[in-house]
Write a protein that binds this DNA or RNA. Structure first.
Length: 473
DNA sequence: TTTTGAGTTGTTCGA
DNA sequence: GTCGAACAACTCAAA
C-alpha cells in the first residue's frame, strides 16, 4: 500500500486542488495534513481576524473530509520536524503540496525538500513566476505589458477544473491535535470560512441574468454599493482556486450579452491578473517586503508621528471617508478597495507616515491579508513601487468621498456620529456652521474630530518631501 | 543600439 | 458647472 501526505497551506479546498489530485493519483492512502506553524501564527503581520478565518476554514475542511471517509490531521510546530515525524508514523513515501511563492514559503519548502520527498503541484495563481517573462527572459515590472503577455499564455479550461473527490480510500490512523478555538471576533466580520461559501459567492457574482460582474467596471469603485465579489479572503487561503476564478471570468467575457457586461468581466479578470502580477513581483524582487522597490525613493523624510498614526488606525482623523474605511477594516477585517487607496494615500501623503506602518497594520487586520498584494498596493500608493502612482497623484479625501460616496451612505454607516449631517457637509463636516452642527447632533471637536491635518498644506508638504528624496537619492 | 510610445485607480487651475 | 491642460522626469517594453 502506498501512502502520501497531502500537506495544505494556502489551498483549503477539495475542489480543483491539483496537489490533492496528484496525491490521490500517486497513492492508495492519502493523509490530509495541516501544520500550525508558529512562525506564521505569531508573526507581527498576522492578527486574530485572519487566524480565525484560517481555523474556521480548517474546521469546514475537516467536516468535508469526514463526509468523504477521511479527516484532517493537525500538527503544530516547525513544518519540517512535524512532516518528518508524520512520514515515519505512516510510512508515507511522498508529500504533495501546492506551491507558495512568498519568501518565507520558499525558504520553508526548500528546507523541507532537502530531507523529505516533497512534490510541489499547482499554486495560488494561474501562471506561476517564471512563465510570464519579457523576450529577454527578465521579469516585467510594468503591469500592462505583463497582462498582455499573461493573456497570450494558454488559458485554463472549464474541463481542467478538478471536481472534489467523492471518497477518500482509507482514513488516517494517526492522532491529530484538535483544531484550536477561533479567537473572539467583532460581530461584524462578514466572511464565513470554507469552500462552500466561496463557491456560493463565486456563483452569486457571475451567474444569473444580470450578475454583479456585468456592472463591475462601474460599481467596483462605489463605496456605497456592494459591487465587488468579496472573494479576496477565499482566494487568499485557497478556499477557491485562482484557476476557477479565472475560468469564471473568461466565461463571463465570452457569454457577455453586451459591451458593458463584457467590460465588467474584463475588468474583474484584470484584477485577478493584478493579483498574479504582484505574486511575480514579490517572487523576483523579495526585498520589496523590506524596502522601496525604487531605490530613488528610499530617503523620504517621514514624519512618523505616533499620535497621528493612532488616529488613522482608530478612524478619528476628521476626514469622514478615511475614518469610515478604517472603521470598516477594524470591525469587519475587510475594506473596500477604493477606501484602501484613499486611506493609504492619506497615511503616506497627508500624514507623511512610512508606508510600511500602514502595510503592517493592514496585514494585522485584513482577513484577505496577502503579503504580495498588500505590499504591491502600498508601494503603488506610496509611489515607491513597480508601476507606481505618479508623484503628483495625491488623493483628496473630500473629492474622493463626493465622487465615490455621493450621498455619504458609506460614511454614515461606518461613522454613525455623522449620520445626521446634511449631504453637502458629509465629506467636510468641519465646514458646518454651528447651528447645523447642533441640529445634526454632531459638534466638531466634541462628537467628531476636526481634521488632524489640513489637506492642501499636507499635499504640498508631501510633494516637497518626495522631491527632496529624489534629489538626495 | 536607438527610438518611440506609453504608463490602473488624480487634482488643480484657469478659461 | 464643465473642460482641457499641466503636473517631472523617468523607466520600461518592444519595434
Amino acid at each position: 500500500m502506498r501512502t502520501a501526505l497531502w500537506w495544505m497551506r494556502r489551498d483549503l479546498r477539495l475542489t480543483d486542488n491539483q496537489a490533492l489530485a496528484a496525491a490521490l493519483a500517486h497513492a492508495d492512502r492519502v493523509i490530509p495534513v495541516f501544520v500550525l506553524d508558529p512562525t506564521l501564527l505569531n508573526s507581527p503581520y498576522v492578527g486574530p481576524k485572519r487566524v480565525a478565518f484560517l481555523l474556521g476554514g480548517l474546521r469546514r475542511l475537516d467536516e468535508d473530509l469526514r463526509a468523504r471517509g477521511s479527516r484532517l490531521v493537525v500538527r503544530q510546530g516547525n513544518p519540517r520536524d512535524e512532516l518528518t515525524a508524520l512520514l515515519n508514523e505512516c510510512s508515507a513515501e511522498a508529500i504533495f503540496t501546492e506551491e507558495d511563492f512568498t519568501p518565507y514559503a520558499r525558504q520553508r519548502d526548500g528546507g523541507v525538500a532537502e530531507s523529505l520527498p516533497l512534490h510541489l503541484v499547482g499554486g495560488p495563481i494561474v501562471h506561476p513566476p517564471g512563465t510570464v517573462l519579457k523576450a529577454d527572459g527578465t521579469p516585467y515590472t510594468v503591469f500592462t505589458p505583463f497582462r498582455r503577455r499573461w493573456k497570450t499564455l494558454p488559458p485554463p479550461q472549464v474541463s481542467a477544473i478538478l471536481p472534489a473527490p467523492d471518497r477518500f480510500p482509507t482514513p488516517p490512523e494517526m492522532g491529530s491535535l484538535p483544531i484550536p478555538e477561533e479567537p473572539a471576533l467583532p460581530p461584524a466580520v462578514p466572511f464565513p470560512p470554507g469552500e462552500a461559501e466561496a463557491q456560493r459567492r463565486l456563483r452569486a457574482f457571475v451567474d444569473g441574468d444580470n450578475p454583479p460582474i456585468h456592472q463591475y467596471a462601474e460599481t467596483r469603485d462605489r463605496l456605497d454599493v456592494d459591487g465587488t465579489s468579496r472573494l479576496s479572503p477565499y482566494l487568499h487561503l485557497g478556499m477557491l482556486s485562482a484557476r476557477q476564478a479565472v475560468v469564471a471570468a473568461l466565461d463571463a467575457i465570452a457569454a457577455a450579452p453586451d459591451a458593458e457586461a463584457r467590460k465588467g468581466a474584463e475588468t474583474w479578470l484584470n484584477e485577478l491578473i493584478w493579483r498574479e502580477f504582484y505574486v511575480h513581483i514579490l517572487y523576483h524582487f523579495p526585498y520589496v517586503l523590506q524596502e522601496s522597490f525604487r531605490a530613488n525613493l528610499r530617503a523620504i523624510a517621514w514624519e512618523n508621528d505616533e499620535e497621528a498614526f493612532a488616529a488613522w488606525c482608530e478612524g478619528r482623523t476628521g476626514y469622514p471617508v478615511v475614518d469610515a474605511g478604517m472603521r470598516q477594516l477594524a470591525q469587519t477585517g475587510w475594506m473596500h478597495n477604493r477606501a484602501r487607496m484613499i486611506v493609504a494615500s492619506f497615511l503616506v501623503k497627508d500624514l507623511l507616515i512610512d508606508w510600511r506602518w500602514g502595510e503592517r497594520y493592514f496585514m494585522q487586520h485584513l482577513v484577505d491579508g496577502d503579503p504580495a498584494a498588500n505590499n504591491g498596493g502600498w508601494q503603488w500608493t506610496a509611489g515607491t513601487g513597480t508601476d507606481a502612482a505618479p508623484y503628483f497623484r495625491v488623493f483628496n479625501p473630500v473629492l474622493q468621498g463626493k465622487k465615490f460616496d455621493p450621498k455619504g451612505a458609506y460614511v454614515r454607516h461606518w461613522v454613525p456620529e455623522l449620520a445626521r449631517v446634511p449631504d453637502r457637509f458629509i465629506h467636510q463636516p468641519w465646514k458646518m456652521p454651528l447651528d447645523v452642527q447642533r441640529s445634526a447632533g454632531c459638534i466638531i471637536g466634541q462628537n467628531y474630530p476636526a481634521p488632524i491635518v489640513d489637506h492642501a498644506w499636507a499635499r504640498e508638504r508631501a510633494l516637497a518631501a518626495y522631491a527632496q528624496a529624489r534629489k538626495g537619492g
